[in-house]
Computed example of a mutant assay.
Amino acid sequence: MMSKWFVTGIFALAATPLAAQTSCDVTHTLQGGDSLLSVAEQYYGDRSRWSVIYYANEVALAGNLVNVPVGVELTIPCLETANRKADPKPLLQDDAGIKLLTGSNYAPFTDQDWSGQGLATELVNAALEESPSPVPFSLTWENDWSQHLFPKLDNKEFDMGFPWIKPDCNADPENERCVNFHFSEPIFNILVRLYVQDGDSLAFEKDDELHGKTLCRPKGYFTHDLDREDRQWLTKGLVKLTQAESPEACFNLLTEGKVDGVTLNEFLGYQKIKDMGLADKVKTLDRPISTETLHVIISKRHWRGTTHLYRFNAGLEKLKSTKRYEEIVSRHLGLFWGE
């Protein structure tokens, strides 16, 4: 599955217009020397759109993103240029037994203005539909994410929240998320990327290449990947972290030469570079900082927490065994990269 993909760098950021898409809805037979990056570049004119092809062919690729098997036939889907009709949500009701909490401004995962209100929203809905004896649920949008974990979920005002990144609870069992919340099985995996000024010679092939560097990540964002057991960049003072007010502020510091790199998830980084017109000033390094997983989260103090967790995980497992999971993911990725 997706966890295999961070073994090697797989992105070269390019703000390529949709017009560069040469052909789609065709079949490509993998040849020697092919990679998902090269196939994406061939058909979409942009290596960064490889994930659209991956999710459309996940079964055929058997989860392999690096050494793709020669001879496998890949379906090359068309990128979305308009909001195709989202999946219906028959279980979604205003007054329901299970109360879900999410927030907007997190496209393509959760956003009230995005198709289907986001990739994660559609996956959670579909998993609940596939759960044993499905029951109705309500969905509340709270755009102040700082209110979600504490107090709203911790006080059991809501039964489940999404999507949340799970820290490494084995390495850091005292992390407040690990102490206070149950995590579902992963809904989706994302890469955390490192962005530097175009022309910078930094390659980041090994961790120690960042020693002595200053990185920027916005205030309030997780930092566990920077200080994991095999790095301890922050604890040992090997890397300096600047926590600016926003992603935009981080990129401004980068272009002003006040930090050496910006680290954000691949979707947010791509979108901000595009919005700020920085495609010719900022580049993405091939090797990611980390791979993170998105989850549904439930308070450990919830008296039915483990029941809710079991039901959701069972539904998610069933969903992933069907074509519907692939179809939802492929549609949203196609829409995101096709903008």
Rank of each mutant, 00 (worst) to 15 (best):
S3M: 08
K4L: 11
T8C: 12
P17Q: 11
A19T: 15
A20M: 10
A20F: 03
S23M: 05
D25R: 05
D25F: 04
D25N: 12
S35T: 05
A40G: 01
Q42L: 12
D46E: 08
R47Y: 12
V52T: 11
N57E: 05
V59P: 03
V59M: 08
V59C: 03
L61G: 02
L65W: 01
V70K: 14
I76C: 01
I76M: 02
P77N: 07
R84M: 10
D87T: 09
D87Y: 10
Q93W: 04
D94Q: 14
D94V: 09
D94N: 13
D95T: 13
A96D: 09
K99H: 12
N105M: 08
N105D: 10
A107D: 10
A107L: 06
D111I: 04
D111S: 08
D113E: 13
S115W: 04
G116L: 00
G118H: 01
A126W: 11
V135W: 00
F137S: 07
N143L: 13
N143C: 08
H148N: 13
H148E: 08
P151E: 03
K156L: 12
G161R: 03
I165G: 06
K166Y: 06
P167Q: 08
A171F: 02
E174I: 06
N175E: 12
E185Y: 03
I187C: 01
L191K: 06
V192C: 04
Q197P: 04
D198T: 15
L215R: 01
D227S: 07
L234S: 09
L234N: 05
T235K: 15
L238W: 05
E245R: 11
D260M: 10
G261R: 04
V262I: 08
V262Y: 10
G269T: 06
K283P: 01
D286E: 14
E292H: 04
L294A: 10
I298G: 00
R304S: 09
R304N: 13
L309H: 07
R311A: 15
T322S: 15
E327A: 15
L333D: 03
L335S: 10
